[in-house]
Amino acid sequence: MSAGARERIMARVARATASRPGVPHPGALVTLPAEDAVDAFVKRFTISGGEVARADPERPPGEWLTGFLRGLEPQVMGVAVGPDVPPELRPGLPAVAAAHAGAGISMAWSAAADTGSLVLPSTGTRAVQLLPPVHVVWVPAARVFARLEDALRELEAELPAALGLHSGPSKSADIGRTVVTGVHGPGRCIAAFS
């Protein structure tokens, strides 16, 4: 049935468009990149409800993160850490399954300043990125692109099975037009710079 459907649809598409002149592609959408991508990212991300934390340069980043997570309300006891987070960026807290973790710790592949987006590969893993109520994402400052287009084009040749662009906390205004956070995904999304 499926193969037959394909032929029928393609024939109908060809017939429908045969006598219509082709419209040329207009080329790239011209947007002005910000001068300082990290500054622009921080501004955009926080407007959308995301939070930004900077590791204490005097301490090892993993140790700083441990203190940061303990200081959150409610205090994070167990964490789920993505397999691609390097050892020096891992907090010294007990590892638990993502569904029960107080926080998920991820590594961003890159970030985009114009939309305030973190680019997260599916190998990160998805459960870590989505199930805990708090999501802390390490962002390498050198990997913040001025434009989303640049971040996506860089990946074009070697795309993972899936990517998530996270640009703030999970939110909804479906009940009484009041914004609530943490509806399904993390209610707090924190970009951490080491």
């Binding site: 305030g116 998805r126 099975a161 640009s167 995904g185």
Partner: peptide, 22 residues
């Protein structure tokens, strides 16, 4: 009026990498 949705899923295919839980 948002610059982008809070979440965008870009799905290329089934999980292929051993670390991917998709």
């Amino acid at each position: 009026g948002q610059p982008i949705g809070c979440f965008v899923s870009l799905v290329q295919g089934p999980a292929a990498h051993p670390d991917d839980d998709g």
